[in-house]
Amino acid sequence: MLKYFDAIRTLLSVAIALVIAFIIIAFISDDPIGTIGIFITGPLASSAQIGNVVEIAIPLMFTGLSVVLLFRAGLFNLGAEGLFYISGLVAAVIAIYWSMNAMIHPAVAILAGSAVGALLSAIPGIMKAKWNADVLVTSLMFNSILAGIGLYFLNYHLRDAAAFANVSYKFQETARLETIIPGTRIHTGLILVLLCILATHYFMYHTRWGYELRMTGSNRSFAEFSGIKTGRVIVTVHLIAGFLAGMGGSVEMLGMYARFQWTDLPGYGLDGALIALLAKNNPLSVIGAALFLAYIRVGADQMAILSDVPAELISIIQAIIILLISAEQFLKMWKNRQLLKEAEKLG
């Protein structure tokens, strides 16, 4: 049983959050049963809805994966937010101004966005590795700085005066990611993110660097004692995590938009933290966690359209899940009893 402790705790947290959501719905909806029904089955109602779930899950998987790496290395960095944003901008610039054939245009744009993400991410990483500067605060500052810079570029250089909203010029068609499933907007980014997840999983559990990352995150002084250069590990993790967050921003931009139009941080970075929590810092579980989150978001949107309960109910569910999953003491008694049993069994 103990082996499944984390899984049980996660499921129970989710269940409690959903039950609370249902109770809220019961209080405010005129047709609670119908509303809950829409919330639960809405995302499966049509292929467009199912497509929606997957589309929303793609950026969540990218930032979730990025945060998984950081959290796993014991680094409380919330910078995926700003990197996602600025890399989207970099990809947009290339999509607008460069001309290439459709084979390499998106690849170049995505790589450029990812590289920018990696390089910017390395700065707080180096500050942490070398001088032990707090990554949480520096990464939050970077989010605000990058948001300001991005907005500046949008307003002063990319803005299409002919458009009615605050958006950039149109991307060249060659830069857009192709749709892979007809009837939906699911784009090639899905394949890319799944490959990234597999690669990260392999990296984390089957390579020397991944090993060093896990040991450093689990117990930094043990890692040092074993001869691992933890400073280097911290910088490397930041590079990779920044790369993934940057790739996420680029892919989202080229897959879902025709113009750059983020006037504020899109929020995927903090969502990444939630995904990492749900996935228990496990790369493969990111898929399920992101799909789950996307599912309940689409469900909530459907509910908002078809019933009298607003979609923002979702943020209450998310908050409860976060509070419960990361609560050490939640179900601790049960865990301790299981530990004792296990110990007795082994003698």
Partner: peptide, 27 residues
Amino acid sequence: KIKTHIILGGIAINMFASGGTVFILYM
């Protein structure tokens, strides 16, 4: 009390508020 990580707790508060306020406003 039940030892949720303080940073994650803060994130939860922010998530709750960003959507929750809109939810309540609408109600």
